Amino acid sequence: MSSEASLSTFKLLKTDRLVVQADESALQPTHHLWNNRGTWWCHLTVRRACGQDQRLRFSLKTKIQDVAIERRDKVRRALAQQQGTVVVGNSPAAVQYRERKKKP
């Protein structure tokens, strides 16, 4: 499964941004994943320019958890590269990230 094929199924605008929690590295490795009757699925959130969030849900087409994690990471990297990201949350890491982005 290529990440490009997954992204092409969604109608994304150039102004849409992947929503990222600043402290996601501390979360469980299966964050954004769930197992539905043996097949791993992923859900991500994209923020529209108007402020609305769109949830993306798609099958990772695997029954193996490690493969699902790799595919989720690949899709997230491609989406972040193609669309950009927006960091949410009020943790110190989120505030620090937003401050860094403000500097020229």
Rank of each mutant, 00 (worst) to 15 (best):
V95Y: 06
H31P: 02
A94T: 00
E24Y: 06
C42T: 10
S3T: 10
Q21N: 12
Q65D: 04
A78E: 12
L44W: 04
R57M: 14
A22I: 01
A26N: 11
Q28P: 06
L44P: 04
D73E: 08
L7Q: 05
Q83C: 11
A93P: 00
Q52W: 13
H32L: 06
V95R: 08
W40L: 07
H32Q: 08
L33E: 00
L60N: 01
M1K: 07
V75M: 05
T9R: 14
S3K: 06
S91N: 04
L44M: 10
Q82F: 07
I64L: 14
V19T: 03
E99W: 10
L18I: 08
R48W: 05
H31G: 04
A49N: 05
Q21R: 13
G38R: 00
D53N: 15
T62K: 04
T9M: 13
G38F: 01
L27H: 13
V75D: 02
S91G: 09
A80D: 03
N90C: 07
R57S: 15
G89L: 00
E24Q: 08
V46S: 03
K11P: 07
P29N: 08
N90W: 10
R98K: 08
N35P: 02
D53Y: 08
K101E: 14
L12C: 10
G51C: 05
L27T: 10
L27S: 11
S8L: 12
T39L: 07
V20E: 09
D16Q: 04
V87L: 05
W34G: 02
Q81P: 06
Q54L: 15
D66C: 10
T45E: 08
W34N: 04
A26D: 14
Q82E: 11
K101Y: 06
G84K: 02
P92K: 02
Q28T: 12
F10D: 04
K101V: 13
T30L: 09
K74A: 15
W34H: 12
K61C: 14
L44Q: 06
H32Y: 09
R76N: 07
V20M: 06
N90Q: 12
Q21P: 06
G84Q: 01
R55H: 07
L60M: 00
S2C: 11
H32I: 04
P29Q: 11
Q83A: 09
R47C: 09
H31A: 15
A94K: 01
Q54E: 15
P92I: 00
T30K: 12
L13A: 11
I64P: 04
V87Q: 02
T62E: 03
A93V: 05
Q52H: 15
Q82P: 05
N35I: 01
R55I: 12
G89W: 02
W40F: 15
L56D: 01
R47N: 08
R100T: 10
V95I: 14
S91D: 01
S8K: 10
L44E: 05
K11E: 15
L13D: 09
